[in-house]
Each structure stands twice: as structure tokens, then as C-alpha cells.
């Protein structure tokens, strides 16, 4: 049984905007799944439909065997949602936010109190339990939404850009937490993110959605093997001079910031690149990936200048 199955799911806003054009998607139980796509691709609409926040125009959604049109409450009981935007009562203490959501999910108060303590401690919010949510920092608010989504211990956790706007340290700790949740508790996790490094690090399977359609899907490892070129940024003394080097099969380009960009085709090694540069008398003082491999694959797939610009930031 799949954790999630979508069949022909479509959403049209008004008469014109086709946010989703009849997508099919299966996510296996226990998977850590990435749903990627540029802004406006339809990711949040798909999540909205799965979680009953958006009315679909057509198609069917099944959560662990429960069709949301037939047994909506049973399906919803199995889902935890961490939305993109903060959506809790900012005047309520942190503890009450979790207790209320536990109650909405039919969990008795005695159990809800224990779970609230458990998840607030696990997400380092226990000390803030009496604090109104409006007084929390951005990172704490993100963690509050994760704790809230887990308080009824869902079998399917959906996170819509959970690490947007949080610093790298908190982001890393969230990754560890989610990986642990997936591995130890077997919770199926679906993640949308703009940090493709996040998807590459955490997820086993991925679907890429663009203009309301799924344009690619498969195992992350398999998609990465199809990324034909990996690009590196090198610190060299005179990048402009390097572009004249006959570096085939590598491609060299001088960047505006004075660094050298080198494209390494699949099947060739960095040793080969360094051999070429060394032969031309170029000294490399440091090197980094321009973007991760999944990001390069993603950018090629969606072919968008605006996304390209975002990827380079």
C-alpha cells in the first residue's frame, strides 16, 4: 500500500489558471520524498489538495488506502502538515498550540499533555512552552510547526519548505531530526524545498513539477546519474587568461567575480581537470561546487532564467 497516491489530480482557479494539470504520483510507505519545482509550479496546490485545504477540480487522492473523498477524516488523521507560512495563533502559548491540535485529532488530554512535552523537548521548545508564539524567533516558529504536525504522530508528514529562512545550523539540526523520524519511526516524509542540497541530502525519491505537470520523477541517485555536467568554481590568479587554455573536454569560463568556472562532463574526473590546469601553469588555491548536482539537473529541466538566477544566489 502506498502512503500517498494521486490520480489525475487537477486544479483550475477560475476559468484560466491551471495550477495542476491532472498529475499522477505515488509515494511508498517509509519513503523520504522530495517534490521539487520552481515558484508557482503547483507544489503547494498539490499539498493543499492532499491536506484538504484546497478543493481539487478533478482526480482522486488516497492516503494509506483512504480516499479523501470517501473517508476524509480517516485520511486526515494520518497526515501531519508543516505549511510554508506560519499559521498558528500568535497569541496562544506554545503549549496550547500543540494541545489544541492534539485535541482536534481526537487525542485525550492526558495523552496530549505527554506528547506535547515529548515533542517540545525534542524540538528544543520546552523552555518556551508558556511563551506566546508571537515572541518566538523565526527558527523556533518553524520548529513549533514541526512539533505541532507531529503531536498526533502521523504516518505521513508533509513539509512545505520547512527550512525557508532559517540559519544553516538550525537547518542542519532539522535535517537530522527528520532523517531520524524517517529511519527510526518509519514516518513517510514528503518535502518541498528550494534548497536542492536538502533534497539531495535527505530524500530517496523525487518528483519535479513544473507548470502544473510532473516533468520528471525517480530515485534521487538515478536522476543524479543523469546529470551530465557538474560545474565547479575555482579560485585562480588570472581567470581571464585561463579561458584561452585548450581544456577539452572541460569547459572554462571567467566569471565577473574574477573566479574561474569549470564544467566537468560526466565520465571525466577532477584529476583530469587539474592536470590540464597544471599543464597550463595555473595554480588553484580553492574550489567549490557551483551548485549541487541535483540543482544543476533541476535547472536544466525547468529551463528558466529566473530560477537560474535564484540557483546562483
Amino acid at each position: 500500500m502506498n502512503a500517498l497516491s494521486l490520480r489525475g489530480v487537477a486544479k483550475t482557479y477560475g476559468d484560466q489558471t491551471h495550477a495542476l494539470k491532472g498529475i499522477d504520483l505515488d509515494v511508498q510507505q517509509g519513503d523520504f520524498f522530495a517534490l521539487l519545482g520552481p515558484n508557482g509550479a503547483g507544489k503547494s496546490t498539490a499539498i493543499g489538495i492532499i491536506t484538504s485545504l484546497v478543493n481539487k477540480t478533478a482526480g482522486s487522492v488516497t492516503v494509506l488506502g483512504h480516499d479523501i473523498d470517501v473517508s476524509r477524516e480517516a485520511a486526515k488523521a494520518l497526515i501531519g502538515l508543516v505549511p510554508q507560512e506560519f499559521n498558528f495563533n500568535v497569541f496562544e502559548p506554545v503549549e496550547d498550540t500543540l494541545l489544541n491540535v492534539a485535541g482536534y485529532n481526537g487525542i485525550r488530554r492526558s495523552v496530549a499533555l505527554k506528547r506535547t512535552e515529548q515533542y517540545l523537548k525534542r524540538l528544543d521548545l520546552w523552555e518556551k512552552r508558556r511563551t506566546p508564539a508571537r515572541n518566538l524567533s523565526g527558527g523556533m516558529r518553524r520548529r513549533l510547526m514541526i512539533a505541532r504536525a507531529l503531536v498526533h504522530e502521523p504516518r505521513l508528514l508533509i513539509l512545505d519548505e520547512p527550512t525557508a529562512g532559517v540559519d544553516i545550523e538550525i537547518r542542519r539540526s532539522m535535517w537530522e531530526f527528520l532523517a531520524e523520524l524517517n529511519e527510526q519511526q518509519g514516518t513517510t516524509i514528503i518535502l518541498t524545498t528550494h534548497y536542492l542540497e536538502e533534497a539531495e541530502e535527505l530524500c530517496r525519491n523525487v518528483a519535479i513539477i513544473d507548470h502544473g505537470e510532473i516533468v520528471e520523477r525517480g530515485a534521487v541517485a538515478e536522476l543524479l546519474s543523469r546529470a551530465r555536467v557538474e560545474t565547479f568554481v575555482l579560485d585562480v590568479a588570472d581567470a581571464a587568461r585561463c579561458v584561452d587554455i585548450d581544456a577539452a573536454p572541460f569547459t572554462l569560463r571567467a566569471r565577473e567575480d574574477g573566479k574561474l568556472e569549470a564544467a566537468v562532463p560526466q565520465g571525466h574526473t577532477l584529476n583530469g581537470l587539474f592536470a590540464v590546469l597544471q599543464g597550463a601553469g595555473v595554480e588553484v588555491t580553492s574550489m567549490r561546487n557551483k551548485s549541487n548536482r541535483l540543482e544543476e539537473f533541476f535547472l536544466k529541466l525547468v529551463h528558466r532564467e529566473d530560477v537560474d538566477a535564484q540557483g546562483q544566489r
Partner: peptide
């Protein structure tokens, strides 16, 4: 609840 979107806590729950 509607304006601050925390009505969504109820809408996504099995209520």
C-alpha cells in the same frame, strides 16, 4: 482564525 490562517489547524485535522 481565518485571517491568521490558524483555522487551517482545524481544516487539516480529522474534524
Amino acid at each position: 482564525a481565518k485571517m491568521q490562517h490558524f483555522i487551517e489547524e482545524l481544516l487539516v485535522a480529522p474534524v
